[in-house]
Simulated assay, not measured.
Amino acid sequence: MSERLKSLAEAGVSIWLDDLSRERLTSGTLAGLVSQNSVVGVTTNPSIFATALAKGHGYDDQVAELAARGADVEEAVHALTTTDVRDACDVFLETFRATDGVDGRVSIEVSPGIAHDTDGTVAEAQELWRSVDRPNLLVKIPGTQAGLAAITQTIGAGISVNVTLIFGIPRYRDVMEAYVAGLELAKENGHDLSTIHSVASFFVSRVDTEIDKRLDQLGVDATLKGRAGVANARLAYHEFERFFTGGRWERLAALGAHRQRPLWASTGVKNPDYRDTMYVTDLVVPGTVNTMPEATMEAFADHGEVLGDQVTPHYDDAAVVMSDVRAAGVDVDDVIEMLEREGVEKFVASWDELLATVGDQLAKASSAKAADA
């Protein structure tokens, strides 16, 4: 077992893998990460599935079955991805039970093309929940403006949610509000609040990438580079601490409600000049999730450091960093707006790639069957 990852878990950080494929499931690789690397969850997105479906032959048999019954591309993608997620949920069922539902979670995202469609998002979230049919599923909903109402309605239906693509503090406050409003709706609808869980995926490295670029364009002091991502996330955790207090929250907590945990996403370092574990080491704080690409996980297992709580003692420093970035001329609000828009666009492009890949595979399977006839 990786002692460094074990120490990270003991510091209160839930380690989730940001990847999934049929090969990971059938080879036992995922189960190995659970036993050896303290992995207690998995996140997926359209980019991950597009990569998985384009590689190897792990999906060939299911694609052939889908082609034989005349499934269209959308149906095939739904079947292929929900099969992987359902099987991954089964891998994590023991963890789910041992942690009373806190961990052992697997996420699947609604189609990114409906990120700005509240009703469409709610309908697809419910369909994914029914199709996967596992209690440890998290349905991923983008934290767009339209997504906020969808989060409330989905939580209100008793469905656990991973809110994704959060980049800025104001939107993060809106996400927490949408979650609590959803719990209040769930209570009205007669759901057991103790069975509902949620994480809020706050993106880190992409913030540095864009702000660093703008700092370079402004020609300002390079000492500000590579600091905004962690500072922004630390301030988000401060908001988390402030939000889940007071009478309104205490009334829900008395009914078994769980706080919506912060999840640090986009934790793979994009700039090779930066420490490859910085978005893990510098964001250690109890009660959070860090979802990592395997390369980041391996780097941490090799040389990562756990230095105690690296968030709550640094709120003042984080505020100074963000103030200095603004003073240097970076429009942080514009950065956040651009990253959200770009994040949706990237997922749409990956989804289109996934549809094209599965469409080609269905066509090849149909041709092969016709040739054998």
Rank of each mutant, 00 (worst) to 15 (best):
V110A: 10
E75H: 06
C89I: 07
P135Y: 07
D100P: 01
L80G: 02
F92M: 05
D100R: 15
H116S: 10
A115T: 06
Q153G: 06
L148W: 00
N162D: 02
A149M: 02
Q126A: 15
T99R: 07
D133H: 13
R105C: 05
G156V: 11
G158P: 05
L93D: 14
T81N: 13
G120N: 07
L165T: 03
D133E: 14
D84S: 09
S111Q: 12
T99Y: 12
I141W: 08
K140R: 11
V102S: 03
I159H: 05
H78Q: 15
C89T: 04
G120T: 06
V102W: 07
L93M: 14
T144P: 11
G113S: 13
D87Y: 02
I151W: 01
A88P: 08
I114C: 13
E74Q: 15
T164I: 14
E75L: 03
D103L: 09
K140Y: 11
L128W: 11
T144M: 03
D90T: 13
P112R: 13
L80H: 04
V161N: 04
L165E: 01
R86Y: 07
G101F: 13
T82D: 08
V110E: 09
V163L: 03
N162C: 09
I114R: 08
Q126M: 12
L137A: 08
T81S: 12
R134Q: 14
L165F: 01
L80M: 07
T82I: 13
C89R: 06
E94T: 14
S111L: 06
E109I: 11
A125K: 04
A79P: 05
I151T: 02
A115Y: 00
S111I: 10
Q145R: 07
G104M: 11
L138W: 11
G158V: 03
A150G: 10
T82P: 07
A157M: 12
S160A: 07
V132P: 01
E94G: 09
L137H: 08
V91F: 03
G120F: 00
D103C: 08
D87W: 02
T154D: 03
P135I: 04
V161C: 09
T81Q: 06
T164S: 15
R97Y: 04
D117F: 00
G143P: 11
D72E: 06
W129F: 13
R105A: 05
Q126T: 05
V161L: 07
V85G: 03
L128T: 04
D133P: 03
V122S: 09
T144F: 00
A125C: 14
R86A: 15
T99F: 13
P112C: 14
N136K: 09
E124S: 12
H116P: 02
Q153T: 14
V77W: 09
A149Y: 00
L80F: 11
A98R: 15
E124C: 13
E127F: 00
S131C: 14
R97H: 13
E124H: 12
P112V: 13
I114K: 04
I155L: 04
T154A: 07
I151Q: 01
P112M: 14
L93Y: 11
S107L: 08
A146V: 00
A125E: 03
E124F: 10
T83D: 09
W129H: 15
R97A: 15
A98Q: 15
W129V: 00
A150W: 00
V91D: 01
F96S: 01
G104S: 10
